[in-house]
Amino acid sequence: MEKVLRFIDPNILASISRMDLRAKTVVEGFLSGLHKSPFKGFSVEFAEYRQYTPGDDPRHIDWKVFARFDRYYVKEFEEETNLNCHLVLDLSNSMNFASNGRTKLTYASYLIASLAYLISKQRDSVGLVTFGDKIENHIPAQLRPGHLQSILLALSNLKTTERTNIGLPLHQIADAIRKKGMIILVSDLLDEPEKIIHAMQHFRFRGHEVIVFHIFDAAEITFPYHNTIKFVGLEGEGDFTTVPRNIRDEYLQKLQTHLAILEKGFGANRIGYTLMDTSKPLDFALQAYLAARTGKI
């Protein structure tokens, strides 16, 4: 059972209609596979007493109060967190690409949902920023009941924008998020790598911990095309008819160069960087997050 839940295929996940259930399935399955609870060591602050009602955890009964009043009272805490996590999602049109029936955006939304669920479950505040060529939606990081639902709802209604300019909106986001925290960027990073790295440096400058999930479709990496293909740019770059085998090597070389620049730039700025293929189970992303959370990156 553990194994089954350990790696949940994105295809199976897609068959689950509700976004919250998808996120729950991923996270619960993921957590049940961990040996050490991530919750330990988190601080809480006392808020008030409340009379015990059946069903409350008896651990929370304040025995001193019981000794004094002979009644059961339960301590309630104002939950505090030491982390503000912002999930930043790229809504550029290039995220609409799918070679296996599932777009990069769909995959990214599952990923964000799972992360949001996990973070809120860890009692950390979580927020969502979506952007195209500008900031489209900004849900500030909070930890309150129902906040997760609003994030999931926003994820259920995503619409891509025609063009993207990753650099500018990322700078805007960096300016907008003042409290130090964690920034998780989910994007296909199809822009000038220097611009992207520069924007990421801005986050680091603000003192944020940054993780980048670079979303790729398998077809972009392997370029498995034959015959004559008319490639049409998803972001209005025009079209290009060619026989793929003639330019395959050149394409792959350029792609590798792009990835290498990004990886080097991110590494130099201590930015966590994970390349995610849309066929990969989402657990990998959660693992990468937790690794970053515990300072392993």
Binding site: K104, F240, T242, Y251
Partner: peptide, 10 residues
């Protein structure tokens, strides 16, 4: 084929 990584092709 609607392709995202046109920058590497153009």
């Amino acid at each position: 084929v609607d392709f995202p990584a046109m920058r590497f092709l153009l």
